[in-house]
Each structure stands twice: as C-alpha cells, then as structure tokens.
Amino acid sequence: MEVRTIKVFTTVDNINLHTQVVDMSMTYGQQFGPTYLDGADVTKIKPHNSHEGKTFYVLPNDDTLRVEAFEYYHTTDPSFLGRYMSALNHTKKWKYPQVNGLTSIKWADNNCYLATALLTLQQIELKFNPPALQDAYYRARAGEAANFCALILAYCNKTVGELGDVRETMSYLFQHANLDSCKRVLNVVCKTCGQQQTTLKGVEAVMYMGTLSYEQFKKGVQIPCTCGKQATKYLVQQESPFVMMSAPPAQYELKHGTFTCASEYTGNYQCGHYKHITSKETLYCIDGALLTKSSEYKGPITDVFYKENSYTTTIK
C-alpha cells in the first residue's frame, strides 16, 4: 500500500517557510505537534488534498525554529505562539472599519479597549522592536488589523473576551517599542525636605499616572512627601515624541487643539466601556464603527496623549 502524501510549508514567522512532505494517514499533531492554519487549530486533523502548498504555523520545537521565533517575536515564552494563534482565530472574524481616516474595530468580545489602543497607536510616533509587531502594525494602518490585535493580546497575556485596560495595554506595548531616546527629568520640591531631581528613561519617561493635564504637570502637581507634608512635583525636561497622561476616570474637559487623542471610560472596574476622542479640525468621538463630532467635550476621561518633541522648564 502506497503512502499518500502532500507537500506543505511549516513556519513560526510566515517569513521562513520549511518544506514538509506530510503523510495523509496521520494527523498534523502526530507529525508536527500543535499546528495552526489561519489561526485555526488543526492539530487533530489529517492532511487533505486542499492543504497542498498551504502554510501551517507550528510551535518552535527545534533550534532553527526557536531562533526564527525569537528573532521575529522577541520572546522565548513557549506558550506565546499558541496564544497568538488562538487569538487570531477570533480577531480574523472582527470587522476593521476605516473611521475618520483611522483603522478602528467594530465592537465584539469586549474589544473596546483594543480599538482605543489601536486608534491611539496610529496617532503617536512609535516604532516597535519585534519585527512581528512592526509588520502587523503597518498592515493594521492599511486596514488589516487582525494579526496586530492578536499579537497585542498575546504580548499582554490576554484572551479574547476578557476586559482590558488601555493604560495597561499601552504599557505592555511600550515595553516592546523603541523608547531608548526618551528621557524625563522631574523635580520634587518640599518646604521641609528641599528639592530632589529624578531622571527617568524609556517607558517611565512617557507615562504618568495622577493627572490628565500635561500643562498642569509642567506647572506642578501636589504629591505627598515622605515627611508627610505636601510637596510639588513638576516637569523639568521632556525628550520624547509623545507623552501619555493618565488618571482614574473623572469628568474632564478636553479643549480642541490642546491634545492629540484621549480615552474615555464609562462604567466601573468590573464592567465598563471605552471610547476614543481625537482632536482634528474639530473633536471626534470614535466608538467602534461609530463616529460623532463636537466642538467641545466633557466626560469621564482616563488617558490623554500629547505630541511632544523637546521641553525644558522655565521655572527657576
């Protein structure tokens, strides 16, 4: 009895394709271990004539594949690729409408935090270190965002349907971005203890939790000093293409032309909904596939993004 075979390709990165001759009487799992086709788990399936010449994702289970996976995804987590594939199996079914010149995501599976993050990423200057993220990001900007969303979920250790947080998501993504040249110098002034300067680099240099107003941050924000008295913390120097200011959701007025974009969060910790506000020729609110415009805006804002380049204080 002759062994019926077909020729397929296996890959971990969709760049390096490895030619395989597979036995049609055995499952993919018996031949390769966990195997995925377009995100779908085909591990328990036997090869079919229609699979001839198709590319299958496999887990990096030998040295060659491990090197290829690390170079593309910059992670050695053995569960990463499987999590990416199972997320992709959902995100490829989502709709990605162009809204006001940006790629958004039609609401499904509690994905409003991903839509808000995706919209924000198209408006701030950011370059990702893992080629996987950078490639998928370019495709997302062009309207094909399924891979990018699935990668975000995998890097953030999230599953489809789980509630997510924009600030946490951005923080994970910033860790995989090139923020080497970003720098922030802060000064804390206390009447009792004097003053202390701190220099922050990388992710810490672009994120701040405690106030939404970048102007206020430049002037000074009140913080408790270690001595128990009130101290003032203010920005001395900022070198970065953008800054992200966050605070627990509270009524906040966004003035046209003073910011790049913002995240609105309605609801409580267990259950809520994100919308995205962007400042173009007027203010726009993007909620999944829905767009509304207004000249002014007041609502429960939790993150505001500002364009920056270089700032030095005039406070002496």
Rank of each mutant, 00 (worst) to 15 (best):
R4P: 11
R4E: 13
R4M: 12
T5W: 12
V8E: 11
F9N: 11
T10Q: 09
T11A: 04
V12E: 06
D13Y: 09
D13L: 00
N14C: 14
N16R: 05
H18T: 08
Q20G: 09
V22I: 11
D23S: 13
M24T: 10
S25H: 12
Y28R: 07
G29E: 13
Q30W: 14
Y36P: 07
G39N: 07
G39T: 13
D41F: 06
K46P: 10
N49G: 10
S50H: 14
N61M: 13
R66S: 11
R66A: 12
V67S: 14
A69F: 10
F70E: 10
H74K: 02
H74P: 03
H74Y: 06
S79A: 15
F80L: 04
F80I: 01
L81P: 09
R83E: 01
R83P: 03
R83Y: 06
Y84N: 03
A87H: 07
A87T: 06
L88I: 08
K92M: 08
W94K: 02
N100V: 07
T103E: 06
S104F: 07
W107Y: 00
W107H: 03
A108Q: 09
Y113T: 06
Y113L: 08
A115Y: 00
A115D: 02
A117P: 07
A117Y: 00
L119Q: 02
L121V: 13
Q123M: 09
E125C: 01
K127P: 11
N129V: 07
P131G: 04
P131T: 01
L133H: 02
Y137M: 15
R139W: 09
A140C: 09
A140S: 06
R141F: 07
G143Y: 05
G143K: 01
G143H: 03
A145C: 08
A146N: 03
A146S: 11
N147Y: 07
I152N: 03
A154W: 03
N157I: 01
N157P: 00
K158A: 06
K158T: 04
T159K: 15
G161A: 02
G161P: 06
D165L: 04
M170I: 09
M170Q: 03
Y172A: 09
Y172H: 09
L173N: 02
F174R: 04
F174V: 01
L179N: 02
S181V: 06
K183H: 05
L186V: 15
N187F: 06
N187K: 15
V188Y: 08
K191G: 14
C193W: 07
C193F: 03
G194T: 03
Q195P: 12
Q195Y: 09
Q197N: 08
Q197G: 07
T198Q: 13
K201V: 11
V206N: 02
M207I: 04
G210N: 01
T211N: 08
L212E: 02
L212G: 02
Q216D: 13
Q216V: 08
K219R: 12
G220Q: 01
V221P: 04
Q222H: 09
I223C: 14
C225V: 00
T226I: 12
T232F: 09
Y234H: 05
Y234G: 04
V236N: 04
Q238K: 02
M245R: 00
P248R: 15
P248W: 15
A250T: 14
Q251F: 11
T258G: 09
G267E: 15
G267A: 13
Y269M: 15
Q270E: 15
C271M: 15
K275V: 09
K280F: 11
L283M: 09
Y284I: 15
I286A: 02
I286C: 08
D287N: 00
G288D: 06
G288Y: 00
A289W: 08
L291A: 13
L291H: 12
L291Y: 11
T292P: 03
K293M: 14
K293L: 07
S294Q: 14
G299K: 03
G299Q: 02
P300M: 12
I301V: 10
T302M: 00
T302V: 13
Y306I: 00
K307R: 14
N309F: 09
Y311F: 13
Y311H: 13
T312E: 07
T313H: 14
T314C: 15
